[in-house]
Design a protein around this nucleic acid. Structure first.
Length: 671
RNA sequence: GCCGAGGUAGCUCAGUUCGGUAGAGCGCCCGCCUUGUAAGCGGAUGGUCAGGGGUUCGAAUCCCCUCCUCGGCUCCA
């Protein structure tokens, strides 16, 4: 062992005494930039106080990077577990990984945590941060780990499961020990007080921040039940969610974002703006589009109907129910029976029960097979705004984002194998146009999901070909994409497209899926140029995904203030006194003549109150009219967004708003 | 389905600890005012306290069951 080592950072290098730590290396290399929480040594995440090997390439991990925050949050989770242990000595620890925007830790405790418990735990954590405990990494032998955590059954399980290879993925145990080339390195992190006593130890892969006072800002958010290892047959643990940030300012910003999201909740705005209604009388997961919401929905439906026609789709209409036999043929009863509403027994049905449809596919297949099809007419694109009903489990229903009754802009494309790439690429382009039209910008993420472990037998060659086709199709569109291995449906691979809303949240909307299963089950064929029957490819696609869901995303993204072309009421005319009601009606009539949705506010209220009403109901334009406006046939415009304008000729405003609506402008300056 | 928290007027919520005649603000409706850019004044209406059962002289309040909502877990063809 040499007495000096050499370390590098990019092209720079430095010599250090053997045993030097990552932070010493970074300092020697003058590579410390801003606040750093850990290092990257030869590509691997590394504790700052851990020795670096000779010849190592060393970089700092910034506290305000995604990677740095994850480390910070992971460390905060440890501090939380220590605090929980202090307050609940019998608590057993499961896992405590960082997640997007925060962290959690699961505990097995005698009773669930209360809100007061969280306050106490948080207060205890603050004390622990002040203690400046160091995080000290120690490699331990498997048997020593088992001995040390003998009274921690979940840790013991992790050690055993990792040992026999059961836990391999981050999903199973995000902070499980590292496995390299089949060799497991078990590491324990000890929280050491300044007086060198050990406050707490946890089995953990690391790395961590150097000490607890390096956690600048955190907050515990909520507790909830969670199954051990995410499996329903495993014990229910109590999970505490928290968040941690590189600065108080960043934490405050995050908490404000959470508040903002709450304010924008489509269930709240849906009620306030009278868009939608969820009456108890209907049952869970079922909703009513009120007149205001129905206008927005109609714009969505009109757009998609026009565009599908333009792009060569053939609209069909199909019933909401069908005999159980249909669902037996399709395999839905067998595979998804639990997610279907129970059958309707009919007195004169000859024993046949009927079922509400959970999907439109079988109907579209029957539309296709209504006569013999030639290869010449492919691709055939059957399309429908199809309302489906799924008996979702009671705990998962959420407003219009996860409903039991919803409408898909559903299409099934039957095509030849050589047409799949073009068809799928067109679907992706179509989705992109749709997001643009409705103000959501470009897709934020395109994910291609490949064959899962549990998939239909055979078809190996088809899977390969279809996965390749999906990738080629997305490449054709020029969009970036990622592969989600094993996340495909059992009957075929799929593409999921996500969009980002105005406050940065990502939503899965569009899905494009290849289906090998149903064409077989229904024996779907076309006649090829050889006169023989061939099996077509079937592509299932829903661009909005669900109308209700997309609608909700728009409500939340626009904060209820829709672009003018979508707004339920596009302009409200406000007379300053009732002697100007007549002119107000004239203004409204001029707008109505151009198909503008306009109302006149003739209530016995002051001007201020009427303007306030216009603003709170988020109408794009308030038009104030009084003596001078009547005289000059103008309006004073107070837009929901932007600056006020006075003495605008009525004709000019009509032309402006008409153009804005016709062009479906969405280039709003969103707040 | 599982864990937890909830359900009082159209909305937001108080009242529940410790059982004793169901409240406020906003909205809606009606009047007065005749208004110049985010809340004028007055009045009226509005509740099977989620539903059912129990304890009690008496239940929004205590107990049990059911339904529904919310936050998570699981699930999302």
């Amino acid at each position: 062992m040499s007495s000096t080592i050499s370390v590098r950072h990019g092209d720079a290098s430095a010599d250090l005494e053997s045993g030097a730590t990552a932070i010493q290396a970074l300092k020697a290399l003058e590579a410390v930039r801003g606040q750093i929480v850990a290092a990257r040594v030869d590509g691997q995440e590394w504790d700052l106080d851990r020795e670096v090997p000779d010849g190592a390439q060393v970089e700092g991990i910034a506290a305000d990077s995604d990677e740095g925050r994850a480390i910070l949050r992971h460390s905060t989770a440890h501090v939380m577990a220590q605090a929980v242990t202090d307050l609940f000595p019998n608590a057993k620890w499961a896992i405590g990984p960082p997640i997007e925007d925060g962290f959690y830790y699961d505990f097995d405790v005698e009773r669930p945590f209360t809100a007061e418990d969280l306050d106490k735990i948080e207060a205890r954590m603050v004390e622990l941060l002040r203690e400046k405990q160091r995080f000290v990494r120690e490699e331990v032998a498997r048997d020593d780990a088992l001995t040390e955590f003998a009274d921690q059954p979940y840790k013991t399980q992790i050690i055993e499961l990792v040992g026999d290879g059961t836990i391999a993925s981050a999903v199973d145990a995000p902070d499980a020990p590292e496995v390299t080339d089949g060799n497991v390195t078990f590491t324990v992190y000890r929280n050491v007080r300044p007086d060198q006593t050990v406050a707490w130890s946890d089995l953990c892969r690391g790395p961590h921040v150097p000490s607890t006072d390096r956690i600048p800002a955190f907050k515990l958010l909520r507790s909830a039940g969670a199954y051990w290892r995410g499996q329903e047959d495993q014990p229910m643990l109590q999970r505490i969610y928290g968040t941690a940030w590189e600065s108080k300012k960043a934490l405050t910003k995050h908490l404000e974002m959470i508040e903002e999201a709450k304010k924008r909740d489509h269930r709240k705005l849906g009620r306030d703006l009278e868009l939608v209604h969820f009456p108890d009388e209907l049952g869970p997961g079922l909703s009513i589009f009120l007149p205001n919401g129905a206008i927005v929905r109609k714009q969505m439906e009109d757009w998609i109907r026009d565009e599908t026609l333009r792009r060569g789709y053939q609209p069909v209409y199909t019933p909401h129910i069908a005999k159980e036999d249909l669902w037996r043929i399709s395999g839905h009863l067998e595979n998804y029976g639990e997610l279907m509403y129970p059958g309707m027994e009919l007195e004169d049905g000859g024993g046949a029960a009927y079922r509400l449809k959970p999907m439109n596919c079988p109907f579209h297949i029957l539309a296709f097979t209504s006569r013999t099809r030639s290869y010449r007419e492919l691709p055939v694109r059957i399309s429908e705004l199809g309302t489906v009903y799924r008996y979702e489990r009671s705990g998962v229903v959420n407003g219009m984002l996860r409903a039991r009754g919803f409408t898909q802009d559903d299409s099934h494309i039957f095509c030849r194998p050589d047409q799949v790439v073009d068809e799928v690429a067109d679907c992706v382009e179509f989705a992109r146009d749709l997001y643009r039209a409705f103000g959501l910008g470009d897709p934020s993420r395109v994910a291609i999901s490949t064959r899962p472990a549990k998939s239909i037998a055979g078809h190996d060659d088809k899977w390969e070909a279809a996965e390749a086709a999906l990738i080629e199709a997305v490449q054709k569109t020029g969009l970036e994409y990622e592969i989600d291995p094993g996340e495909g449906a059992f009957y075929g691979p799929k593409i999921d497209i996500h969009a980002r809303d105005a406050i940065g949240r990502e939503w899965q909307l569009t899905t494009v899926q290849v289906d090998f299963n149903l064409p077989e089950r229904f024996d779907v064929t076309y006649v090829g140029d050889d006169g023989a029957k061939h099996r077509p490819y079937m592509v299932h696609r829903a661009l909005f995904g669900s109308i209700e869901r997309f609608f909700s995303v728009m409500v939340e993204s626009f904060n209820g203030a829709f672009p003018t072309w979508l707004a339920p009421v596009q302009a409200v005319v406000i007379p300053v006194a009732d002697e100007f009601d007549g002119y107000a009606d004239e203004v409204a009539a001029a707008l109505r003549a151009n198909d503008v949705r306009v109302e006149v506010d003739v209530a016995d209220d002051t001007l201020g109150a009427k303007i306030r009403r216009g603003q709170t109901s988020k109408v794009p334009y308030a038009l104030i009219v009084g003596a001078s406006e009547r005289e000059a046939r103008t309006v004073a415009i107070r837009p929901y967004r932007g600056d006020q304008r006075k003495d605008v000729p009525l004709d000019e405003f009509v032309t402006e708003i008409d153009a804005e609506i016709r062009e479906r402008r969405t280039d709003l300056d969103l707040p």
